[in-house]
Amino acid sequence: MPTTSLTHDLNHNHTLLVGIGNNGRGDDGLGWSLIDKLEKSGLYRGDTIFRYQLQVEDAEVISHYKTVIFVDACRTLLEDGFDVQICKPALSFAFSTHEIPPESILHLCQDLYRKSPQALLLLIEGKDWSLNMGLSKEGSANFDKAWNYLNTEFL
């Protein structure tokens, strides 16, 4: 079972799904693929955006929503092939701001716009990150598990 739950009551028009990744990099496209499928299902009521990486201006974007769900591929082994985790604001300074973590975007949202949307991370375990379109066998299997969970619990 995922660490926390994505429930039906979060499927509303004040929810934003943020797909992070790159579908030209194998399983890095897991987040985008899941959002594609959600959109095509016609059952999701909120908004969606696709990002290669999160940027400072995304703090302003998420400030307009009650709930934000970041959907991303991950390299870490996950017991069920996917996981849902609570995302809390936390500021991290790094040498490069080409990639800013969701926690920092939430922190900036709070700091700049005085808004604190409820935020969750939906992580899907990937295997292959090479330059190609399409998911690996393992990535596809984990994608299916995440999709089945969303279909049952969220949509």
């Binding site: 400072v56 703090a59 500021l91 300074f93 040498f95 700091d111 700049l112």
Partner: peptide
């Protein structure tokens, strides 16, 4: 410090500048 020389630090230090910068670019 190099960790400070970025837009995230600017946003924390000078909120008004950051808010306007973000919306002007937008």
């Amino acid at each position: 410090a190099k960790e400070q020389r970025n837009i995230v630090a600017v946003a924390i230090e000078n909120k008004e500048l950051a808010r306007k910068g973000i919306l002007m670019r937008k």
